[in-house]
Nucleic acid binder design. Structure first.
Lengths: 191, 191, 191, 191
DNA sequence: GATGAATGAGCATTCATTCAT
DNA sequence: GATGAATGAATGCTCATTCAT
C-alpha cells in the first residue's frame, strides 16, 4: 500500500471512530506512519482528503457492484446481485459504509461535483432504467424506486449490524428482504 | 420562547447548515441574542447542547406521532398515521429531520443513554408489537420490520425533498408508498 | 459563625487545596452555603477577599501570641513563649499557616499596606527590641535576628509536619530547637 | 539560547512579577519572541511549563552547589560552601529563588514526582549524612538539621534582599550566620 | 519526495462581577 | 441584606497549514 492509500485507510478508520472534527490531520499522519507534511503533500487540504476518501470508497463500491451485476443476465437477477451485493459489501466494509452515510449528512457533501455525484449512482440508475424500459417495474418514478431500494439496503444492513445473526440466517434474511423489495417495485403482471 | 429554547432553535439552524464543528458556540449565542456565557449557563458543554437538541427534537417528534396515532383505531390505520405522520413531520421540519440523521452518524450518538434511546423508538415499537400480537404482520422479526419501515419513511422523504412535487402529488405518493410498505410487511392472510 | 466568617473559613480551606486561581468565587460561595452575590456583597473583589483573609489570620495569630507572651516575665521566657507558641499555633492551624506562606509569595502581598505589614510583625519586633535594649542579644541587627528566628520556626514546623512525631517528642524537639536558637542569638555573656 | 530555554527564561521573569495565574501563556510566548503555538509545541500544558521551569531551576542550583562543594575537602568546609554558595546563588538569581518558594507553596508541587523531589535535595542530604557518619553533628535527626539549615539560608537571604547592605558587609553577615548555624548543629566535642 | 518545527487564527470554556428582583 | 441569572472579557489550547531543509 503506497502512502496516499495508507493515509486514506487510516483516515477512514479514525473518521468513523472520532468523526471528521474529532480527528486531527496530525493523528492521521502519525498513525499512517508518515509525517505531517507528507499528508499535505498528497492532499491539499483536510477537506480535500475527506472528499478524496469519499470518492475513493464510492469508486470501490461501484466497481464491486459492476462485477456482481455482470455475472447475471436477467433484469431481476441483476437487481438481486445489486441488492445482495450492496448489503454484503456493507457488511464486509462496515467502516466504509458508515463513512458514506456520515459524509452524506455533512457539509462536505457540497464539495462533491454534480458530475461525480451522477457517476456514483450510475450503476443503480442504469439498471433500473433498463428494467423500466423492459416494463419490469411498477409505474412509479424511477428515482423513487432507486431511493426506496437504497433505503431498504441500508435498512436491512442496519438491522444485521445491530442484531447478532448467524451467517446462514443473514443470507436468508437478505434474500427475503430482497424478494419483498422486488415484489414491492416489480410490475406484478410480467413473469 | 425562553432562552434555552432560543439557543436550541438557533443551534439547530446553524448545525444543519454548517455542521457541528463548523458552528462556533459564539455564533449560536450571538444569533440567539444571548451572551456567550449564557449559553454555557444552560448547557455545560457544546456536546451537551448537541445531545440536548437531539433529545428535544426526538421528544417533539414522538409527541406529534402519539397524537397522530391516537386518532385512529385499527392497527393498519394507526400504522398509516405513523407512516404518513412521520413523512409529513419530516417535510415540515426539514432541519430537525436532517439533524437527526446527522446526529445518528456522529460520535455524539454514544452520549445518548440506552434508556433515552429506548424511549425514543417506543412509539414505533409498541405499535408494531401490538400488530404482531394481533397477527397482522408477516413472520419477520419485529425489529426488522421497524427498521425497514423507518428506512422507507426516510426514503420517500428524501425523494420528495430532492424532487419538486406538488402537494397533491406528494400526498398521493406518500400514500402509495405506505400501501406498498404495508403490503410488504402485513400478513396477506388476514382481512 | 456569620456569613463573612463562613466565607473566609471556606475560602481558606479551598485556597490551600487548590490555590487562589484554582478556586472560583462561585465554589467558595456554594461551599459556604451562601449565594454568589452575597460573597461580593461582603468582599468587593476576589482580591479583597484574599487580603481580608490574610489580615484576619495574621490578626488571630497575633492575638494568640500576645496572650502567650503575657504569661511570662523574663525576656527569654517571653521569647520561648513566642517561639513555642508560634510552632504550636502553626501545628493546630495548618491551613492558616500554609496560607500565610502561600500569600507571602504571591503578587497579593503588594496589596497589603505598609502600615498593616508593620502591625503584623509588631509583637515579634517589640519583644526583640526590648531584649536588645536589655543587652540580652548578640550584636546583630535586630531585623536579622527576627528573620532568622522566624525561619527557624517555619523550619521546625515544616519538619514536624513532614515526619510523623509523637506529641511528647514534638514538644521536646520544639524545645530543643528553641534552646539552640536562643543560644544562637543570645548574648553569651549575660546570665 | 534555543526556543525552549527562551520560553523558560521569559516565564520565570513574568511568573515572579505577576504570579502563575497573572501570566497568560500568550504573554510568555510573545515576550519570548515565539508564537503561541510554539510554546505549546514544547510544553504540553501551562502546568507542564511551570513544572519544567521548577525542575530546570533546581537542576541549575544543584549543579552550582556540586561545583562549590567539590572545591573543599573537610566536612565543615564543604558545608560552608553549600551554605554560602546557596545564599550567593539566591542573591544572584533572585527571580529563580523567589520562584522556587512560590512554587513550593502552590498546588503545582504535587505534580513533581517523588523521585525528582529526592534528587533535588540529594546534594544537601548526602553532605549532612556524610558529616553525621563522621560524627561531626549534634545527635539530632539529619532531616531536621537539613530543614533548619535550609531555613537559615532562606532567612539570611530574605534579610539581605530587604535591607540594602554593601557587598563587603554582605559577605561578612553570610559568614557570621554560617558560623552561628554551624555552631548550632555541629557536635561541640569535635575539633 | 519527505520532514517536522513553527505558525497564529480560532474556539470552547471559565469566572469575576453586576444588577434587577 | 440576599439572590442567582446574565454578562463578556480573558485565556489555555488545538490544529490545519506552511516552508526551510
Amino acid at each position: 500500500m503506497d502512502k496516499p492509500e495508507k493515509i486514506l485507510a487510516t483516515a477512514l478508520r479514525l473518521f468513523v471512530t472520532y468523526g471528521f472534527h474529532g480527528t486531527p490531520t496530525s493523528k492521521i499522519a502519525s498513525e499512517a506512519g508518515v509525517s505531517n507534511g507528507t499528508l499535505f503533500h498528497y492532499f491539499k487540504t483536510k477537506d480535500d482528503l475527506v472528499v478524496a476518501l469519499y470518492t475513493s470508497i464510492r469508486g470501490e463500491l461501484n466497481q464491486f457492484l459492476v462485477r456482481q451485476i455482470n455475472t447475471a443476465s436477467t433484469s431481476k437477477e441483476k437487481f438481486r446481485r445489486l441488492f445482495v451485493g450492496s448489503v454484503e459489501w456493507a457488511l464486509h466494509n462496515g467502516d466504509a459504509f458508515y463513512f458514506i452515510q456520515q459524509f452524506r449528512f455533512s457539509p462536505h457533501l457540497n464539495l462533491v461535483s454534480e458530475e461525480e455525484s451522477r457517476r456514483q449512482s450510475e450503476v443503480h440508475m442504469e439498471l433500473l432504467q433498463e428494467a423500466r424500459n423492459a416494463n419490469w417495474l411498477k409505474p412509479l418514478p424511477v428515482d423513487l424506486i432507486a431511493t426506496l431500494t437504497a433505503s431498504q439496503i441500508s435498512g436491512i444492513h442496519q438491522y444485521l449490524v445491530e442484531k447478532t445473526v448467524s451467517p446462514d440466517e443473514q443470507r436468508k434474511l437478505i434474500d427475503d428482504v430482497f424478494e419483498l423489495t422486488w415484489a414491492t417495485v416489480a410490475n406484478p403482471e410480467l413473469p
